[in-house]
């Protein structure tokens, strides 16, 4: 067995700490993520899926338990410092790109994810050909808008760009929180295909939240059901392949 790339040990989070309304959101999450895992995550609204991502990403501190990256404790590491090995795509297309900067400028920012940025000249022209080629892999005309401010792009193009930016510099862990939910069915399918293509050919380790049970079954090698702040089921390999929508749906009843 190889060492997990990311490990959560009894992770708990509280909201409204110290008030009468204090509630536990994550109630002891134990999870081992191995290199190359592509895990889809499903669960009811409010189950704590986004909270789980926020704890992994570091913009929410765990109130109990431990998070390990390659065996190293990162429970107290800041959100900014975790970006050295972690990338994420948000659900809202507006959150992933800088609207007044161009497509190419946004991509350039992403090539230095988690690195120190110095007072040296940006190398925009030198990277243009490479960026344009990458943009073309998204099959949505992004490559023709390299010098357009991203604020002028369609939601689908922005989200495709966000995804490209998250993978431009290879992350150890990629977090996708319903990253196609704001898109029309066709655009959404297009981006999902591209996502799957990139994750499998590059052997990325990724976690993808989705509300589409079919997608959760189609993609990835592992599926996790989150319910009321706990992992209710964890289907791996073979077990995931034989899983059906009907069986999965039972976790959403009552």
């Amino acid at each position: 067995m190889n060492k997990p790339i990311l490990e959560l040990k009894n992770v708990q989070t509280l909201v409204n700490k110290g008030t009468a309304n204090q509630t536990k959101i994550l109630k002891g999450i134990n999870l081992q993520i191995n290199a190359g895992d592509f895990i889809t995550i499903v669960g009811t609204n409010g189950a704590g899926k986004s909270t789980l991502f926020n704890v992994i990403g570091g913009n929410l501190r765990a109130d109990g338990g431990q998070i390990l990256h390659n065996g190293q404790d990162i429970t107290r590491t800041s959100e900014e410092d975790r970006t050295a090995f972690l990338a994420r795509v948000f659900q809202d297309p507006k959150l992933g790109t800088a609207p007044r900067m161009t497509v190419a400028e946004n991509m350039l920012l992403a090539t230095k994810r988690g690195e120190h940025r110095y007072l040296i000249f940006r190398q925009l022209k030198q990277n243009m050909a490479r960026f344009t080629k990458l943009a073309a892999t998204m099959n949505n005309g992004l490559e023709n808008r390299m010098t357009t401010a991203t604020g002028a792009l369609s939601g689908g193009q922005r989200q495709a760009l966000s995804f490209l930016m998250a993978t431009l510099k290879r992350p150890d862990i990629l977090l996708l929180d319903e990253h196609t939910a704001a898109l029309d069915p066709h655009t959404s399918l297009n981006l999902l295909h591209a996502t799957n293509e990139r994750i499998t050919t590059d052997h990325l380790t990724a976690l993808m939240i989705t509300h589409h049970l079919e997608d959760a079954l189609t993609y990835g090698n592992r599926l996790i059901v989150l319910k009321d702040g706990q992992i209710k089921a964890d289907f791996k390999g073979e077990a995931k392949q034989v899983l059906t929508v009907d069986k999965l749906y039972q976790y959403f009843e009552d």
Binding site: G57, N59, E79, E80, D81, T83, A84, A87, R88, F90, K94, L95, G96, T97, A98, P99, R100, M101, L109, A110, K112, R113, G114, E115, R117, M165
Partner: peptide, 16 residues
């Protein structure tokens, strides 16, 4: 510039 333009995105790229 990115910090002013979209702080959420800037943070997610490791910008302090």
């Amino acid at each position: 510039i990115a910090t002013g333009d979209n702080p959420t995105m800037a943070k997610s790229l490791g910008i302090h």
